[in-house]
């Protein structure tokens, strides 16, 4: 059953950014979801993902970065993106009332989330929807240094035809990350998880990824509640 979506605002870096909060009746976890570089929270992919994962009892808070609110094409400086992430995470934490809060996002949004977590943002896990491991054609320009400082479970959802994540490079990074990292591949998927020759609505593509991500979030939530139980005993 569809859960209602509540719109809100966050004040970040002198900009009022829009948020969308979806809370299913009995959530097992909350996932904060940031958008990719090219589109904000109203993109059908983002809406489709968040609505579908609510059916798996995962609440979501998604938010815009300031440059989207200002109608700009180029992302804000990294400092502003991080500041926005921290503010959104705090807001979600308050809404989650003690339940586990995970961080994730599409491409750029997921990458900034992982930088925040590497530097201490207390997320219970990370969900990457197409991690931009390197610019196309430049596998040596790796954006992985901070990932090794992350000590929570990470889920990498990656298209096998994504020029931002060369297969060999990804395999090497995941090996170094060890059992912190889980990989789920979408065969033939590009950076937006579209498969050539198969026409799909972005909403359905997002919903399909939610189905793949849900078991990981459940696992993190279970680990979180058993840890919380051990503490209270």
């Amino acid at each position: 059953m569809a859960s209602p979506e509540a719109r809100g605002r966050l004040d970040v870096a002198n900009t009022d950014v829009e948020t969308a909060w979806i809370r299913p009746p009995t959530p097992i976890a909350t996932l904060v979801v940031a958008h990719g570089a090219g589109a904000g929270i109203d993109h059908p992919f983002m809406a489709g993902f968040c609505r579908a994962i609510a059916d798996a009892k995962v609440a979501t808070l998604r938010f815009n970065f300031p440059y989207i609110e200002r109608g700009r094409r180029s992302p804000d400086p990294e400092r502003v993106l991080r500041e926005t992430w921290l503010a959104a995470f705090d807001a979600a934490n308050a809404k989650a009332r003690g339940g586990p809060v995970l961080a994730g996002g599409k491409s750029l949004g997921g990458r900034i989330a992982s930088m925040c977590v590497a530097d201490g943002m207390p997320a219970a896990g990370l969900v990457f929807l197409g991690y931009p491991l390197h610019p196309p054609g430049k596998p040596e320009r790796l954006r992985d240094e901070h990932l090794y400082r992350v000590d929570v479970p990470m889920l990498f959802l990656e298209g096998t035809a994504d020029p931002f994540a060369n297969g060999d490079v990804l395999t090497r990074v995941l090996r170094k990350l060890g059992d912190r990292a889980t990989l789920i591949e979408v065969e033939g998927g590009d950076h937006s998880f579209n498969v050539r020759g198969r026409k799909a609505d972005a909403r359905d593509v997002g919903a399909g990824l939610a189905e793949l991500a849900a078991p990981f979030v459940e696992r993190v939530a279970r680990a979180h509640s058993s840890k919380a139980g051990a503490r209270s005993r």
Partner: peptide
């Protein structure tokens, strides 16, 4: 990180990732 590509080389780059199975 913008880069200038030969048209042919960008095509090869896309084809080498498109549909590749790992």
């Amino acid at each position: 990180e913008r880069r200038h590509w030969h048209e042919h080389c960008w095509r090869v780059e896309l084809n080498s990732t498109r549909g590749r199975s790992r």
